[in-house]
Amino acid sequence: MISVTKLLFARDYFGDRLRYTKSAHTMRNGASEGVGPVVVWNSTKTCNLKCMHCYMKSDAKKYKDELTTDEAKKFIDDLAAFHVPVLLFSGGEPLIRPDFFELADYAAKAGVRPTLSTNGTLITKGVAQRIKDIGVGYVGISLDGLKDVNDKFRGAPGAYEKAMKGIENCVAVGQRVGLRFTINQHNARELDKIFDFIEAENINRVCFYHLVYSGRGEAMVHDDLTHEESRAAMDTIIRRTKDYEARGLKKEILTVDNHCDGIYMYLKAKEAGDDAAAEQIMKYLSMNGGNRSGIAFGEVDPLGYVHPDQFTQHHTFGNVRERAFGDIWQDVTNPIMAGLKDRKPLLKGRCAKCKWLDRCNGNFRTRAEAVTGDFWASDPACYLTDEEIGL
Rank of each mutant, 00 (worst) to 15 (best):
T182C: 15
F153N: 03
C170H: 13
A172Y: 10
G166D: 08
D144C: 05
K147D: 11
R180W: 08
I141V: 15
I131L: 13
C170I: 06
V177S: 06
N184T: 09
D148S: 13
A156H: 11
T182E: 10
R154S: 05
G145C: 06
G145K: 09
V149L: 11
G145R: 04
G135H: 02
K152T: 12
K132A: 13
I134H: 04
Q175I: 01
I141G: 03
C170N: 03
A159Y: 06
A163P: 04
F181T: 15
E161G: 12
V136S: 02
H186R: 15
G135A: 02
E168N: 13
R130W: 00
F153G: 05
I167P: 06
G137L: 06
G145M: 09
D144E: 06
H186G: 15
G178I: 00
G158R: 11
Y138K: 11
K165P: 05
I183F: 07
K147R: 14
C170F: 12
A156M: 14
E161F: 00
V139K: 00
I183L: 12
I183V: 15
A156E: 08
G178W: 05
Q175L: 10
G140T: 03
L143D: 04
D133V: 00
D148M: 02
L143T: 08
E168D: 15
E161T: 09
G166N: 06
L179R: 14
R154N: 03
N184R: 12
M164P: 05
N150V: 01
R176V: 11
A163T: 12
F153P: 06
H186Q: 12
N169A: 09
A163D: 11
G155I: 07
V136F: 00
K152E: 07
G137A: 08
R176F: 05
L179W: 13
E161M: 09
A159P: 08
I131H: 02
Y160G: 14
V149R: 14
Q175T: 01
L179P: 06
R180D: 09
G166E: 02
A156D: 01
Q129G: 08
